[in-house]
């Protein structure tokens, strides 16, 4: 069990009135799970992802990640958790435009305090794993969308995280590059990394082991795609 959400609520205050975005979410994700989250626009998927990624804390309820209660952690500790445990993949890649692919991938290791030489070696390794060994010194604007996303994935996995959070990772890609990314995720998942992926598209979600649906901030019954590896969800 890598994470559990217990009766998690999230609301934003717009003017006077609080706007509930997530309501009473309970879920458990085990080590090595590959989970897709689907839902209509505005249903709260990104908000949930931000909570899972420790970029935000719940308004109510508890979130336990890797045995730690996230709500009780300091800013500093949250930064460390994001750095060590989680790798993010965004829809629009979010690469640093003024850095080469290699420098982009080295960034999380810099924050982890890894010395330069090790940093470079590990970043090169990660890029090689994603088939980008001949694009290491390219800038993002010299790479295709698919290549950018693979650089972003390399950046997400370079710190050897336990969990990868991907918010519409194929949203900006064509079908072929999207498929390639899905294959990469599959490989990573087979190596034991837990993946949680948000998507709009059914055929992308089908690559995951399980699909969860979110509607108006509520999690509805999970829909297993393949054999369920243990009781993933509890209500």
């Amino acid at each position: 069990m890598i994470l559990t959400l217990e009766h998690v609520c999230k609301e934003y205050t717009k003017g006077r009135e609080p706007v509930p975005v997530l309501q009473d979410i309970c879920m458990t994700v085990n080590q090595g799970d590959y989970l897709a989250i689907m839902g209509p626009s505005g249903s709260g998927k990104t908000t949930l992802m931000n909570l899972l990624g420790c970029l935000d804390v719940p308004s109510e309820g508890t979130y336990i990640l890797d045995g730690q209660d996230v709500g009780s952690l300091s800013d500093e500790a949250l930064a460390r958790v994001r750095n060590r445990l989680i790798g993010f993949v965004f829809q629009n890649f979010n690469l640093m435009p003024k850095m080469t692919a290699l420098d982009n991938v080295m960034l999380p290791l810099l924050y982890a305090g890894v010395p330069l030489r090790t940093r470079r070696r590990q970043a090169e390794e990660a890029l090689r794993l994603l088939g980008l060994e001949d694009r290491m010194h390219f800038y993002p604007n010299q790479l295709s969308g698919g290549q950018c996303q693979r650089v972003a994935i390399a950046r997400a996995i370079v710190g050897k995280p336990k969990l990868i959070l991907a918010d519409e990772p194929t949203g900006a890609l064509d079908t072929a590059s999207g498929e390639q990314i899905m294959q990469t995720f599959r490989t990573l998942n087979e190596r034991g990394i837990t993946i949680i992926m948000i998507t709009h598209e059914k055929h992308i979600a089908d690559h995951a082991d399980r699909i969860a649906h979110i509607l108006d901030g509520r999690l509805v019954e999970p829909e297993p795609v393949q054999a369920v590896k243990g009781g993933a969800f509890a209500k």
């Binding site: 800013d75 500093e76 930064a79 994001r82 993010f88 979010n94 982890a112």
Partner: peptide
């Protein structure tokens, strides 16, 4: 955006 990304990647305050 750059600052947000850096924070997501684990940069402390």
């Amino acid at each position: 955006a750059e600052i947000g990304l850096k924070k997501a990647l684990g940069a402390t305050k």
